[in-house]
Write a protein that binds this DNA or RNA. Structure first.
Lengths: 208, 208
DNA sequence: ACAAAATTGTTGCAAAAACAACAGAAAAAT
DNA sequence: ATTTTTCTGTTGTTTTTGCAACAATTTTGT
């Protein structure tokens, strides 16, 4: 059952030195993966933060997703039939577990614990990813900058309460919400003015 | 491997009268499911068309997703921790296979073929859902109505070529792209004027 | 510790989108 | 077959967003 699943326990298992798993390290700013080759790659972020980003023809950066510890990503989740060039960019030092999805139902030679756990948990792992993506769609489908901000604050307040620190800089947040930075900044000023929120850079306090 | 998977073959198996599966029929306009209860429900649309919809406080309809034959949806994919009230609405007569996800790894009494197939294919089914959702995020993250239209036309042209019929009415398309209908209509007129496209209601022809 | 680079908040202006209202066309209901 | 309802395209007006430029602050790199 969904709530019983613990990805932390799961990822501990990789330490069995399974021959089918690679662990790679990336420095801040490095590209972890592009979506051009290795269509079967499936990755788990073991530590660090990374973004799935794209630049539109106008030079605007779009942060499609933000990955933190135990987020999953990889070529198997991305439809290559598009003109859109997304990359996964390390925001800070990252350790990544890389797995070739072809092997998901194949035990490795030693039938290691990692595989047993992976096969068992895989459905739950990706279901929770779908849940996240659905929330993301709800957010992006909001029409105004104000609604996007309040919607995003709602999500954060579910987790952290009325006061929290954004996981983004203000500039990054505007890329994540797909709005102009200065417009968003203006809207934040309006929300502050109307006493809906207090904000200083990444620190947010909801007053409702 | 991903491309070997065939959901049609899979759904044929449900006919084994598995005791854990329900098949329900819905008429046009009926609500197939809300996201308030039955958190373990997992559904496959066997026939018909349905939308995952929400109405914002302003009365605007948002079509978050469109489901057609063999689309999957259900409460397990949706985060209840939100104020957002989505429902799945039948656009036409729908037949839906309903399954309780608790049972995914449990064989039914007769260990029927349906379960064998479901357990085997489940990862691939949901991975292809993630692929779809990622494309959807890319689309919604576009900032202008023009880019959304062209992005959506691109997706359709990958599948159907330069001429195709929209799976939406013009009004529905605006809800799917989260833009005002009349603004979108105006932008379509501009695209026609610039000889980028020909359009008459649902019929689209790309001229580039 | 200092210099360089990036981030932030602000504002005027231009561009785009939302809103509103309407008439004609198409689709659905009776 | 006819009426009713919904959909479509259009356009004027208002509101919101994007763009550009700038100074102040913070962060980063050396």
């Amino acid at each position: 059952m969904k709530d019983d699943f613990n990805i932390v326990e799961f990822t501990k298992e990789f330490s069995t030195n399974c021959s089918k798993v690679q662990i790679k390290n990336f420095e801040k700013g490095e590209t972890i993966t592009t979506f051009l080759v290795n269509r079967n790659q499936f990755c788990i972020l073991l530590s660090g933060t990374a973004d799935l980003v794209k630049y539109d023809y106008n030079g605007n950066k779009i942060i499609a997703e933000r990955f933190s510890q135990y987020s999953i990503f990889g070529e198997i989740f991305y439809n290559i039939n598009t003109n859109n060039e997304f990359i996964v960019e390390a925001k800070e030092k990252c350790q990544v577990l890389i797995y070739s999805y072809d092997d998901i139902n194949e035990k490795c030679k030693s039938n290691c614990k990692f595989h047993q756990t992976l096969v068992k948990c895989f459905p739950d792992i990706i279901i929770s990813k779908i849940t996240d993506l659905t929330s993301r769609i709800e957010l992006l489908s909001r029409r105004t900058t104000r609604d996007k901000l309040l919607g995003y604050f709602d999500l954060l307040s579910k987790q952290y309460g009325k006061s929290f620190t954004l996981p983004f800089s203000v500039t990054e947040l505007s890329n994540y919400l797909s709005v102009d930075r200065s417009s968003m900044s203006r809207e934040l000023a309006v929300l502050k003015n109307e006493k809906f929120i207090e904000q200083d850079r990444r620190k947010i306090k909801l007053l409702y």
